[in-house]
Amino acid sequence: MNKPLDEALSVEISQRIKSKAKKTFDNAYKAALATDQAQYVQGFLVFPGKPYQPIEHAWIELAESIVDPNLPFLKKDSQQLYYFPAASFNVTQLKEIIEESKEDYPEDDPLPIYGDAPYEYYGDVMLGGKNYLDAYQAAEAKSKEINQPNFENN
């Protein structure tokens, strides 16, 4: 069962960290650093309508809720957002991974984090391990469920 989305805290944190549109991973990273006891989470987001498929996304989770610093840019009904986590890191792990990535691959953006090979295919892309594939498949099934054409109204 997914944790509920805390809309008010999502907007508050988004404003506090000055989140930017189309920077889902950076926004979640900054939110994790700025929020006590936060877990940085990567996975997939599903909602009714375009693009009619899961999108790769990042957010933070607290003990009882999801906090999405990208919420103001989504322009979607928060009751119709479905989150599918693939990987989760506490702030200490997150900082270590980012530092190591910057040292090992200074020309590449350290986010998102995909872990170690072997990677699996999901969609048309090969990124992340089996946990990514599992999250993508669950998200894809939900996307198909909520984006079914309504033939009664045609």
Rank of each mutant, 00 (worst) to 15 (best):
L33T: 10
K18M: 13
N90M: 02
P118V: 07
L33A: 06
K144D: 08
Y105S: 12
P72H: 14
L111V: 09
K102W: 06
L9N: 12
F44Q: 00
E96Q: 11
S65F: 00
S101L: 02
A34F: 03
A86S: 13
S101W: 00
S88Q: 14
L62I: 03
Y132C: 04
P110Q: 04
G49H: 10
L62A: 08
A86I: 09
E61D: 00
I60R: 02
M1P: 10
M126K: 14
Q93T: 06
A8P: 04
E152A: 11
L81V: 11
A138M: 13
K22H: 14
E152N: 12
K95R: 13
P4Y: 12
P48L: 05
W59H: 04
F151S: 03
D77R: 09
L9D: 10
A87V: 15
Q79M: 10
E145W: 01
K20R: 12
D134S: 06
E100F: 07
E12N: 07
N27K: 13
A87L: 15
Q15R: 15
E96L: 10
Y82L: 14
A58F: 01
K76D: 03
Y122V: 10
Y119G: 04
Q148F: 10
K142G: 01
K95W: 01
G123P: 12
F47P: 09
D104S: 14
G115E: 03
A31R: 12
G128M: 08
N27P: 11
Q93H: 00
A117T: 13
N2G: 04
Y82C: 12
E7C: 05
K130G: 01
A117G: 07
K95F: 01
Q15D: 13
E152T: 12
P72K: 14
F47E: 12
Y132I: 02
A139I: 07
I60G: 02
D68C: 01
E12L: 08
